[in-house]
């Protein structure tokens, strides 16, 4: 089975990098399982599947990966909650303090995690985000940033091997 990372990185299977990916098949399998755990968890808490897809698309727009944006837009379209769609775009808000605060936090986690302080977590709590949801949101943002970097890294390595 081809995982999402392999599909989007497009590494030729018969290349040396393709062979390396076969050696790391378990890493790819676990990465796919992590994707499912943050995007479509059995217990979503206060982050609906649609909200998760919208925030993932928003973060991928920040980093500029159009293929991954399209992937998460697909999840959003099937998420059954069109209300959160504006959150899929940087700067987008829906007038709901709790979910708008989560979107702003996803922006910070993607763009400038080094600037994070206790105040960012206090702001989420003040906006009504529960502590379990703060952890769920952090895992979602952290995973998407991992995935963006694995795909970007593979794309550069693929280009070098093709030179």
């Amino acid at each position: 089975m081809t995982t999402l990372i392999e599909k989007l990185a497009g590494v030729p299977p018969d290349s040396k990098l393709g062979a390396a990916l076969k050696v790391r098949a378990e890493v790819l399998r676990l990465s796919e399982a992590a994707h499912d755990a943050v995007l479509v968890p059995r217990e979503p808490g206060g982050l609906s599947h649609a909200l998760r897809a919208a925030l993932a698309a928003r973060m991928c727009r920040h980093v500029g990966n159009a293929a991954l944006v399209a992937h998460y837009e697909g999840y959003l379209a099937h998420g059954g909650d069109a209300e959160v769609a504006p959150l899929a775009h940087p700067g987008g808000s829906i007038g709901d303090p709790r979910r708008d605060a989560m979107a702003r936090h996803a922006d910070m986690l993607t763009l400038a995690p080094r600037q994070a302080t206790r105040g960012d977590i206090e702001a989420l709590k003040a906006a009504g985000v529960s502590e379990p949801d703060i952890v769920r949101l952090s895992e979602l943002a952290a995973f998407v940033n991992y995935q963006l970097r694995v795909i970007a890294g593979l794309t550069f390595l693929k280009e070098v091997e093709g030179r």
């Binding site: 986690l109 995690p113 080094r114 703060i134 952090s138």
Partner: peptide, 11 residues
């Protein structure tokens, strides 16, 4: 560590 840092440093 793009993942781990976003948990450890922010939570």
């Amino acid at each position: 560590f793009g993942w781990a840092n976003r948990l450890m440093h922010t939570l």
